[in-house]
Nucleic acid binder design. Sequence first.
DNA 1: CCGTTTTGTTCATGGGGGTCACAAAGCGAG
DNA 2: CTCGCTTTGTGACCCCCATGAACAAAACGG
Lengths: 411, 411
Amino acid sequence: MTTSRTKPERGRNALGPALELVHTGRAPTRAVLTTELGVTRATAGAVAGELQTLGLITVDVRPGAAAGSQGRPSHRLTIADDGPVALAVQIHADGFRVALVGLGGRIVATAPACGEVHPDPAVALAEAVAAGAELLRETGRRCVGAGLAVPSAVTEPDGIALNPLHLRWPPGSPVREIFTRCLDEAGVPVTGFCGNDVNLAALAEHRHGAGHGARDLLCVATGHRGVGGALVLDGRLHTGSAGLALEVGHLTVDPAGRPCHCGSRGCLDVETDPMALLEAAGREPGPDGSLLDQACALARSAGPGGGADETVRGATRSLIDRLARGLAGLVNILNPDRIVLGGLHRALLEADPGRLRAGVADHSLWGRSGSVSIVPGTLDHGSLVGAAELAWQPVLDDPPGALRARTPVGT
Amino acid sequence: MTTSRTKPERGRNALGPALELVHTGRAPTRAVLTTELGVTRATAGAVAGELQTLGLITVDVRPGAAAGSQGRPSHRLTIADDGPVALAVQIHADGFRVALVGLGGRIVATAPACGEVHPDPAVALAEAVAAGAELLRETGRRCVGAGLAVPSAVTEPDGIALNPLHLRWPPGSPVREIFTRCLDEAGVPVTGFCGNDVNLAALAEHRHGAGHGARDLLCVATGHRGVGGALVLDGRLHTGSAGLALEVGHLTVDPAGRPCHCGSRGCLDVETDPMALLEAAGREPGPDGSLLDQACALARSAGPGGGADETVRGATRSLIDRLARGLAGLVNILNPDRIVLGGLHRALLEADPGRLRAGVADHSLWGRSGSVSIVPGTLDHGSLVGAAELAWQPVLDDPPGALRARTPVGT
DNA sequence: CCGTTTTGTTCATGGGGGTCACAAAGCGAG
DNA sequence: CTCGCTTTGTGACCCCCATGAACAAAACGG
């Protein structure tokens, strides 16, 4: 007799880890899923089937590209082309970006860039969310959540932006609350998550970029002014007990350096940011292009084949040396196995990788013993992808549970 | 028919977490075990029964001391009086300590203190382990493992002491390997674990002392010379990717300070250690008592009702201010919710708690927003207890598995 | 002495993953 | 081309462990 019970659907516990493996590109087939998850082939097959019925992945009985030459070729697990997406918003000093991001950190759709941020966070976020809702309508994709990246320290768990000064937003703005309200009003009934932009870029680099596979990943990056840091431990963002960790800007890198608004002098913040390079090179910030772009161009010109004059080369070397001191200080405290640099710091690394790496090794206590690799970031819109990661996280933790709760949007 | 199968013994999965709750004193009865573990009463009962048959805990149908006034009184879960122990060894500049430590961080037996450390680590550790084996023989207790605390950075996972300079051991000594060999030769067939003494003290403070319940715990302590740090995240020691994290001694706390052997100047290491206080107070290190004890006594005399002269008070204040700068720098990077201080730093805190706390708040970026509590350590032999924690960890992770593998010692 | 409340225990039930055997799909040797 | 060899995918059955419900136990209060 055919019992009318619901199908067994085994492998519910391993569902989250399995999706995470596919998400980070570490599980192209059921076979590697088996070994990575440490379960049997039967369970891995059931897990893959469940993810398929959830509409998250598709299975290709693939035509070619055999990796292992022997044995039965495995089926390829692919992220579903028409699967759900996360709504990602990044606010920066020059405007905001809005995109839909699917599993695997793939940017599925982007709204036209906006070049101005309204000084009232409620208005600015309403604009951004409206653009996102429009994208959802156009694509008809289901939305699993929304993430927001802000150039400010953001408290945990309340989601308050303490210093969004470059946006001219009031300090202490409750951005998570505002973001969630905007989502509600725009008819996108999903949870909103917020985070610091450098933190989120670090998360994205760890899952889909230059930080892939690192156990203890340290990211350091400049925006237009100032320096930010982030730490990813065991695949999770470490934000400290209140979300305020990795404020690395006020490490002392030059005891005789210029005064900083924090009261000390020679801070990383004022000694290695774009303005510092322009000043050291004797340049005025030009009207065309952002401060960050100008500084990066300058640093690149000081690199091999860049053809910069001696003043610029000297200024770049000087900044590299100070950055090395700062990174060495962080290495002493955090002992990461990889450092990913972004913004101007990435350009400094690319201008003279040897000098920076040697400087860090020289100034850190165990520079010779504990080897740390220092690499440039690889993602163009890391903060945006990272914001989406926040929204995807509940799905990665419990796929069926998170997807049950959400309602589709579109049309 | 009576099936001759082994007894069911349910609740194997929750066994580790349950033991950890008892171990850290957070599960006095089966009832709280139920709520803390998030399982049913049936499972909690089975778990308690299993721990009992393993000889780790005992159940007291207790006579008095009813906490909740209503309902059936619960049975008290107690750590077994004759249960297994861990062999703990702490090496410090003035000698070594050896003890047997039971669950809950209880020191069960101590060997007479030894006042000298042989310059060959193999000889020194053989002496210590011999004393430990003697203790095991005397008490007849079963041994689950052995832990060693060393005043040096220790690499993970190989267990190499990079700078045991105060012991006059050669840098790069493979202490874990030596320790394990000594254990074998002494007839104590257990695994040996090693760690930095401050790290282990932090672990002990988190589980049994002033750090109990903290999410992100930072410990900073002085030995006789220099400063050490440690971080406990979510109950686990964070030692970085190679075990070399939290080398906090070379944070700059006074840009105009005295030169440090690291090449910089004004490092926490040389500005806030016992020698720094003695120098600032114009005292010579006396022959009687250790440097640490003299400095602590001096700091205490500068506290309320201590009756120190103005020179000593000024020196103490100055050290407190520099320590505050260093702690603030760490707060900016790590954002802990609690800081436990040990050694001279503990004495400095107790001499003037208000000044230190205000200094940290003033110099940290979010001192006002992200509140961090700063407290003195409470354990007398934190490193020793922490070393035992290392040895206990496998048992906490998988009680039946770890206990099956071990063989009893004694007699 | 009897309800109420909380705790501990027994027993049947069921979900979820493991084990095992078998089928499928290429590769290479003969 | 056919026959093994190797690896991958799948279905049937089993075992472990936690749940849920009912019952028993041990106080307290009227």
